[in-house]
Every structure is written in C-alpha cells, then in structure tokens.
Write a protein that binds this DNA or RNA. Structure first.
Lengths: 213, 213
DNA sequence: CAATTTTATATAACGCGTTATAATCCTCTT
DNA sequence: AAGAGGATTATAACGCGTTATATAAAATTG
C-alpha cells in the first residue's frame, strides 16, 4: 500500500469513528481521546491528518456540503429569484434529514478558536448567493441601480447569521428557513422588477412567528 | 461588615480584575487562574459567586446592558417605527464606544456550553423589540392583519443572529447595524401603513454591501 | 462569650484540546 | 538487500474550566 493509501485509510477510520460517535452521543461528546479509541488509532493521528479537531469537523462538513451544493443548479423555474427561494427549501430538506448531526458539527466549527474556519463557511455561502443574484441581474429581474453583488452579500449574511442561531440551538431548521425566506422575500420585493416581484409574493406567508423549537 | 457586604466586595474585586484583563488582553485571554491572581482571590471564589466563568461574564454584560436599555425609551419621534430605527443607531454608538470589550464578552457567553445563557440574551432582545412593535400596532402604524408579536419576534431574531456574526468577528458593529437596518426597513415597509412607511423609506440607503471589517 | 453558619482559602485532581519526545512500523529509493 | 524518510504509535505533559476536600476566617446567633 502506498503512503497516500495508508493515509486515506487512516482518514477513513477516523472519519467513520467520528460519525459514529456524533450520531450516537452528539458532537459535544466527541473527544479526541474517545475518537482515537473508537477509531483504533493513536491520539496523535487525527492531528497529523487534520491539524486539529476543528480540521476534522471541517472535513466532515465539506463532504456533506458538496452533496448539498450540487443540488443548487438551475432548476428551470421561470425566475432566478424563484430559484433562490427553492434553494432555501432544498437546504431545509437536506439538513432536516439529519438535523442534530449537522447542527452539532456546525456548532463545534463555529465556536472553535480557528477564525479561518468561520471565515471559510462565510465566504462560501456568500459566494453561492451572490452568484444567484448576479444571474438574476443578468436576467433582468432586478431593478436598475440595484447592485447585485451587494444584494447577494446582504442575503448571504442574512442566512448565515440565522444559521448561526440554528447551530446554537435557538432555532429549528424549519424556523431558520422560514425566517430566512421571510427576510429574503421582503428584501427582494424591493430589489426586483414588478413581474418577478409578483412571482415572489406568492411565496410570502406573512410575518408568522416561527413555531417554538 | 455583613455577609452581603463581604460578598459584594469580593464580587467587586473580581469584576474589576476581569475588566482589566479583558481590556488589556482580550476576553479570550481571561482565564480563571489569572483572574484569581489579578483579583487577589482564591480560584474557587468566582465559582462561589457566579457559578461559572460564563456566569461572571453575564454579570459584566448585564451591568452594561442595563445602561444601554435605559436609552431605549420613547424619544419623541413622530412614528414608533422611526424610534425603532433610532434604537439601532443608539445601539451602534453604544457598542462602538468599546467595541472589542463588548464583542469579547458576547462571544465568550455565546460559545459557552451554558445554553441558558444564550436563551436569556435571546428572550431579552426579543422582548424589547416586541414591545416596540406592539406599541407601533397600538399607534395604528401597522397594517390590519399584521401580528405585532410575530413581527417583533422576527425582527428580534434578525438583529440577534446578526449580532452573533458580529460577536464571531465576521462583522464590525457598523456593518451589523447597517445590515439590520436594511433588513428591518425591508420588512417594515411591508408591515407598515402608507404614512409611516413613507417615513421609514427615508432611512433606507439601498442594499449597499457593508464595507469590509 | 461560645457555638453555629456563612464565606473564603489552599491544594489536588479530573477531562478536555493540544504538543513534545521518542520509538516503531512501513513504503520508497538506490 | 539496505538505508532513508514518511506515517503511526505510546507516553507524558501543558494550560484550560471545573470540582472535591478540607481548612481558616469572619459574621451571625444563642
């Protein structure tokens, strides 16, 4: 077996063990010593491969997010702005299928003292949202004078910080998406031209408070 | 000296020392051992008085927030909804006067594994914002059919989660308030009757992206 | 004043993430 | 086959928040 194969086999053992522990006892109970035992690996090995506990969690998150982000392709809706709302629904469905697992990983990454980890997730989401607003602008769905990039950054910031509240356990994923949808639609109704705005307002469900978690 | 006086003297020594350390080296460098040394107090004492490090930080935060919240009284603007926007400006000014100090304390409380601490801050802010939307509703500034309490919860959630991003170091306080203002106005323009809505739109500065931190 | 209760102290210890040190295994190069 | 170098291991240690234990000091109570 080559060096690389050896490494990725160790990686595999570690990531599988981490998943098992998080699924059975929650991310808060994932400790490096327990992980090493469960993965049948030296305490040092995860540090060699991921640099830190946070590095390992980011690896878990990245694998999962790759699947989600694939689902963000154009879905053939009449308006790009409608696609953006559909994207929220897809996100909700995706994370809800394994909510506690994803929430725990998010949270642990978020509270780690590796600020570059937060920064990474931040710019990732902002980039995705901004690509959509730029597409909407190119499709002529936004009013003249609306800066698509600035708009995307604001919408990205909105969902990001709300997901922070989700990660902290203050909101369910359903509440998180409901709130984000309400905010996005309120903003986009101001930014959109009349026709796509009319389409958007069909998604608007009032200011209903998110049900308790 | 009475029991209570003794206790509050110890409390004072501890809180002063904590402030000194946070101001000079940042909240992340506040450790219980260093605090005990700086305050000339046993390592156990802060635990006796505050229960935990988080408890101490909450005490620091509460003292400060009491001052800020006093400033949230009705300010004689023509519309309650305008007062709400002014409240954001007051908040920005207040935290900016000592931004790193407040940010550090917020962050440490936020990431502590005492979920009740987050829950406390959460309900506190939501209560304040909801009181304002209820006043606006009573003053006839909101459209018929708008649920003032649900609206307040949504606006509260919005500023809360954005301040979470601030605490995490992803935003400056100026960016935090600029974003919140944009979101609040977008939402309130939908919820408000035409006259107060016209007043609100004067506060709207477009979707300008927050400058980099 | 004496007895009790409350507060504060000193010291050691736990599990945590992480790092240092040294040794051991295994792949690659020659 | 032999040596070099990378990957993994075992063990101990650090500082962190927190807790246990046992003791000293001070205020309250009788």
């Amino acid at each position: 077996m080559s060096f690389e194969n050896r490494k990725s086999e160790t990686r595999d053992k570690i990531e599988r063990a981490a998943e098992r522990i998080i699924r059975s006892d929650g991310a808060a109970r994932l400790t490096m010593r327990r992980l090493a035992e469960e993965a049948q690996v030296a305490l040092r090995s995860p540090y060699n491969l991921y640099g830190s506990k946070t590095g390992l969690l980011i690896a878990l998150l990245d694998r999962v997010n790759a699947v989600l982000f694939q689902d963000f392709q154009s879905d053939g809706a009449e308006w790009v702005l409608s696609e953006m709302i559909h994207t929220l629904d897809k996100t909700q469905k995706f994370y809800e299928a394994d909510e506690e697992y994803h929430r725990g990983i998010f949270w642990e990454i978020m509270i780690s003292d590796h600020p570059e980890a937060r920064e990474d997730g931040h710019s990732n989401i902002v980039r995705i949202v901004t690509e959509m607003t730029v597409r909407a602008k190119a499709a002529g769905e936004l009013r003249d004078g609306v800066d698509a990039i600035a708009l995307g950054e604001q919408l990205g910031l909105s969902i990001l910080s709300t997901m922070g509240s989700w990660a902290g356990g203050n909101l369910s994923m359903a509440q998180t998406i409901a709130h984000t949808k309400m905010v996005w639609i309120s903003i986009l109704l101001l930014a959109a031209k009349p026709e796509p705005a009319a389409a958007l307002s069909k998604h608007f469900n009032g200011f209903g408070a998110p049900e308790k978690a």
